[in-house]
Design a protein around this nucleic acid. Sequence first.
RNA 1: CGCGGAGUAGAGCAAUCCGGUAGCUCGUCGGGCUCAUAACCCGGAGGUUGUAGGUUCAAAUCCUAUCUCCGCAA
Length: 305
Amino acid sequence: MGTPDFSVPCLRALVQAGHEVVGVFCQPDKPVGRKQELKAPPVKAAALALSLPVVQPKSLRGGEGVRLLEPMAPDLVIVVAYGKILPPDVLAFPKYGCVNIHASILPKYRGASPIHWAVLNGERETGVTSMQMDEGMDTGDILLCETTPIGENETTEDLFERLSTLGAELMLKTIAQLEAGTLQPKPQDHSQATTVGLLTKEMSAVDWGADAQTIHNKIRGLYSWPGASTTLDGKLLKLHSSRMTDKTSRGQPGEVVCSDGKLLVCCGDGRCVELLEVQPEGKKRMPAAAFLNGRRIPVGTILGQ
RNA sequence: CGCGGAGUAGAGCAAUCCGGUAGCUCGUCGGGCUCAUAACCCGGAGGUUGUAGGUUCAAAUCCUAUCUCCGCAA
């Protein structure tokens, strides 16, 4: 069971490892894009390409989940970023229960957007955890965990990529040990738990009054969705990538301090971040140097006003 | 028919309203300066202005159609 790109490597890994995949669950198709066309979730596309049966129930509650699982008769259900809560009757249905692959080091970052928040908070390390699911939100007993460092300039998208691969490996390891009976589930330390929610577009606007590191974290943490942004002359300016600099300035927060084709912006703590890639409203994304070539930004321009 | 922006040299833009030699910054190539350089100076190449029609002595510019890209909304 899974829906977005993150789940796809797990699905592929299952097939490649020779496991019998009796069925794939994912969210229903949703209208997407400017034309509101229905689009299949990545997991559905991948499953169809592998000729696997796909179901997309609106809900698993009220016995619906079990009704769908019955003919498939799975020994084990693997859940990776499915996006739905599994009711108790579903959790209890497979012989080995339901195992979830979660993109954080539990009990930290339970919930919907663990990767985004790890980057936003400037964490140096994150990972993937497999757990025996229970009725709570990512509260089940931990089976295995694998950690990985987060790079200084790594974006959420980069991490997604790496963690989805790591997750697939961890999943195979978990299944192997489950079969061998060598797993020792460990209850989570619930007192250390943190839970994070969904991201919204309202979070996109950069507060230049914050310190430079926080702003840099925001730009890479919200990449590529929903993306960080500010305004210039009342128009939206998306910020795709940035870098910390050693430069300091006495300018106001949001003040542009550009030199040598570089777009440096002063932050609340007096340090400057360099914007590397931006996207004006109605335009494509472009390197900062290109942006400065076409549109001269006078030093002293204040962003975000 | 949800609202809106945009297609001009390799990149980002100007010129479009009010038709008349397509310009700027960067890159690129050549030369110069320099101990040296991503710095500076000089010079060159590179465009059938998204596509198709129309109006006109003349269209990047006006009219019609069409394709593509993007922001918002969802």
